[in-house]
Structure formats: C-alpha cells, structure tokens
C-alpha cells in the first residue's frame, strides 16, 4: 500500500477520459444505435401495414373475381335463353311461311281448276250447240238460245 502522486495523475486521466467519452464517444454511437432502432421499428411497422394492405387487396381481388364469374355465368345463361328464343321464333316463322305458301298454292290450284271448269263448261256449251246443229241440220242462233245454254252450263 504505497499511495502516492500517481493517484492524482490517474484521477486526472480518469476525469479526462470520462469527459471525452461523454462528449465525443457516447452520444454519436448511442445516437446512431437509437436512430437505427427507430428506423428498424418504422420498417417493421411499414412491413406490417403492407402485409395488411396486401391481404385486403387479395380479398378484394377474390371478391371481384367471384363477381365477374357470376356475371359471366349470368351472361351465358341469358345468351342461351336468347338463342333458344331465336330458334323458337325462327321455327315459328318458318312454319307460318310454309302454311302461307301452301295456302297460296292451294288457292292458285283452286283458281286454275275453276278457270278450266269454266272453260270446259263453255266448250261443252259450244259442243252442245255444234251437236245440236248437226242434229237439227241448221244453224242455231246462239244468242237466241242463250238462256237455254246458260241453264245447261249452270247445270254442268
């Protein structure tokens, strides 16, 4: 135990070292650490937020996809309906057209037949007159006996 002036020297050195450390060493190092800690904390918070955003966006996208699928299904359904409707309509139209054409044909045939009948009747009357002329041997005035002829024609 020999305490001597070294003690004073060391005390001064100690004081100076602590002062220097307090002034120039501790604040920048500790400041850097704390600032980095803050940065990391901010970064982690941002990551968490981004994760939440991503989750939300994914949910939204899934919902939209579901909606779109439903819409697509609707549209397809409608299109199918419309298609059957069109086919039905066209079939109906075709049927109608056919009926019309058939009816028209039948009317035409009827008209022709009537016309031919008329013709035939007329020719019959002419033939009758010609026959009668041959039988009687003289000319018959057609106009004089027209009432008889008409009666004949009507009877045919």
């Amino acid at each position: 135990m020999n305490l001597n002036a070294t003690l004073i020297g060391e005390l001064i050195a100690f004081t100076v070292f602590v002062w220097f450390c307090m002034k120039y060493v501790w604040p920048p190092l500790n400041g850097a650490i704390e600032e980095r800690q803050n940065k990391i904390a901010d970064g982690l918070a941002a990551t968490e937020r981004a994760e939440k955003d991503l989750e939300l966006a994914q949910a939204k996208a899934a919902e939209q996809l579901k909606e779109a699928k439903a819409q697509a299904a609707d549209i397809i359904e409608q299109a199918k309906k419309r298609a059957t409707q069109i086919v039905d309509e066209e079939t109906q139209k075709g049927h109608d057209e056919r009926e019309k054409i058939i009816a028209q044909g039948a009317a035409e045939v009827e008209a022709e037949r009537n016309r031919v009948k008329e013709d035939l009747r007329h020719q019959v009357s002419v033939l009758a007159v010609a026959g009668a002329e041959k039988i009687i041997g003289k000319e018959i005035d057609a106009s004089a006996h027209s009432d008889i002829l008409d009666k004949l024609v009507a009877e045919l």
Partner: peptide, 21 residues
Amino acid sequence: GFWTWHVDTLAWSIGLGLIFL
C-alpha cells in the same frame, strides 16, 4: 514520500485509455 510518480502505471494506463478513446 507522497510525491512519487509510478511512471509505468501512468504510461500504460493513459496509453490504454487513449487506445480505448
């Protein structure tokens, strides 16, 4: 007596303190 300096203690300790700083 008291006014003696341990130069080795002083030199090494201050040197090491300066290295630390």
